[in-house]
Structures are given as C-alpha cells and as structure tokens.
Amino acid sequence: MPRHFTTRRELEQHHFYPAATIGAPLLALFLSAYLPKLFPVSTIVDWPLIVVVYFYIARRNPLSGTLTGTLTGLLQDTLSNGYIGVNGIAKSVIGYVGASIGLKLDVDNILTRTILNFAFSLLHSLILFVIGYVLLASHGPGMLWTHELIRAVVNCIVALPVFLLLDLARSDI
C-alpha cells in the first residue's frame, strides 16, 4: 500500500520495523560487550553510538532521537562499572543534535554519513570528558585527543557497512 506524505519532512523521515528499532541497539550493546573478548582491539569501536547515530539521522525526529539515545546510553552504562547516566547524557545530547542536523542534510550520501559519524564520535568523547571533569570531578590526565581521533576514524570505517545493513531494515523502501 503506497504511503502518502503531506510535508517534505514526512517524506524524508525513514521508518523501520519495530523489531529492527529495538533489536539493533540491543545487538550493538551485545557486540560491545562480547567482541572485545574475541578481539581486544575492538574496544575502541562504540557500536551503540554507531547504531543510534543511524537512527537519529534517519528518523529526523529530535524527540525520538533523544529518548532512543537516552535508553541506549543508560543500558550501556549498566554493563560497565561506571556511573549510570554518563553515556545516557552523552547519547541523549547527540540524539537531539543528530536528529536536528539530519533534517537539513542529505543523510543518504556516503560522504555525509562519514563526516557525521566522525563529528558525532568526537562530540561524544568531548561530552564524556566534560561530564567526568565537571560532574564527577575525575581529574585524570586530560582528554587523549590522539586516541579519540583514532576512535572517530575507526567508528567511521565500521559505520559505513553497518549503515548499509541498517538501510535494509527500513520499512519504507
């Protein structure tokens, strides 16, 4: 049955199967917990961030992006030994910003996706650092910019095939 859109925004908002909406973030959380056991270097990949960035920019709905990011971040915090809410705050902010930017860009373009992933990965690291420094008073050695740049690049490389896979989960294609 053909879909009918009344606005350009509705036309550009992608829709997903519910199983994919729930299952993809959970799978990403599981991968982030299980893959480092097999491949220790994979700890640098933030699988939940990649998946939720995809949903932010594809749905283009700031409200939905904020709530999805919050839930995914909180679940990620429960698996770690850190304070619950650190990743929640970071991913809810990124969810809102991502969905807001997604309204103004062609997010199906590979170059746009790469740049957005790189920028959001760096922004995520910066928010985590600010939360740790300001809210949690953890005065460590400061932000390791080289490490975070490498993380952003790796996240970009991993995100491209993941985005293509998640494109298949859209219900409006």
Binding site: T66, Y83, G85, G88, S92, Y96, I131, L135, L136
Partner: peptide, 22 residues
C-alpha cells in the same frame, strides 16, 4: 521547542541520578 525541553528534562534527570550515585 518540545524536543529541546525533553532533552533538557532528560539530561537534568540523569544529572540528578549521577549526583545520587555519587
């Protein structure tokens, strides 16, 4: 600004949660 208000509310709630855990 519904989305922005929701974001602020969610972030504030989590900050209170962090303070409680501290």
């Amino acid at each position: 600004y519904k989305g922005l208000f929701v974001l602020l509310a969610v972030v504030l709630a989590q900050m209170i949660g962090l303070a409680t855990q501290m």
